[in-house]
Design a protein around this nucleic acid. Structure first.
Lengths: 155, 155
DNA sequence: TCTTGACCTAGAGTCCAGTCTAGAAAATAG
DNA sequence: CTATTTTCTAGACTGGACTCTAGGTCAAGA
């Protein structure tokens, strides 16, 4: 967990990024989110951030904690099967400010249903797999071959 | 555009596939499994069947119910996240006959654990998403903006 | 200062799991 | 028999989500 940013011993101006104002380099954000720096730049190209990520005078990206929080939410959405295109639509809605909360809610509710459905499907798949596992266990215990796939299964 | 077919019409035994011996055309198997005929040919190229699929004298594939059953299991494995390469390893084990049941069991157990882990992850993701949904619902009910992503989130 | 190591861009490449195409032959319905 | 539908092959193509490359620039420690 690399997330503390508490008592700030401020240097001076904002040169560099190991500072107190919440400025995080791309590498630190990668660590904090588990994403690769490549993936972070890809995310930006795809318009998935809620704001244009600011740069240092030298052109390097400076993130803050809100960016990290957003990325952590994005990871939840992505890991649970939301396509990048949909995350982008959500980001677009958030970016365009208040007034479209109903749309954002609808999008999230749709995804919630999709996740519930996926869990249900996996649970059904799991039952089938467990059944196979139990069949093999019984076979190995008892030396029978009933219910196993044979090279040339009995008609 | 029917070209003449010369004299190559050698008499052969099994015409057609709507017969009694359980012979199924690729189209019927596609229907029965929910896969496309393209996917079925792809599956075969990838060596995922338990046997070489036999052909009619005219070169068309003839499946049987055991093939369909195997495909239905494959679909469970695939849908639950098993990569094609792993399904192929499993098929290879089954094809090479008795004696490797321990390996097959290990493969299935590993996948069982993977599916359990995925369900756990999705359940955690779902909690986060539900939380967001509830936040938006409250916002829309009460007209507050607490906890919502703003275009420029408060530092 | 010098030297690493982190970072920059644009764009090409990778992997997975199919999907689609073209042109031809086979099966089936009328 | 004819027309329509299905199937055949090899191989090119797709889409999603990154990942990596090349050729630099920037930042920080000894």
């Amino acid at each position: 967990m690399v997330a503390d940013m508490g008592g700030g011993d401020v240097g001076s101006g904002d040169r560099g990024m190991g500072n107190s104002a919440g400025g995080l380099s791309i590498g630190r954000v990668a660590e904090a989110t588990g994403m690769s720096v490549h993936a972070l730049r890809f995310f930006e190209r795809e318009g998935l951030f809620l704001r244009p990520i600011p740069r240092t005078s030298g052109g390097q990206r400076v993130y803050d904690q809100a960016d990290v929080d957003w990325l952590l939410l994005c990871n939840r959405l992505r890991d649970s099967g939301m396509p990048i295109a949909t995350i982008r639509r959500f980001a677009d809605l958030v970016r365009s400010g208040p007034g479209n909360e109903t749309e954002r809610l609808a999008l999230l509710r749709d995804h919630e249903q999709a996740v519930r459905a996926k869990i249900a499907e996996l649970t059904a798949d799991l039952a089938v797999i467990q059944d196979k596992v139990r069949t093999y266990e019984r076979h190995l215990r008892e030396g029978t071959a009933v219910g196993l796939w044979a090279p040339t299964p009995p008609a």
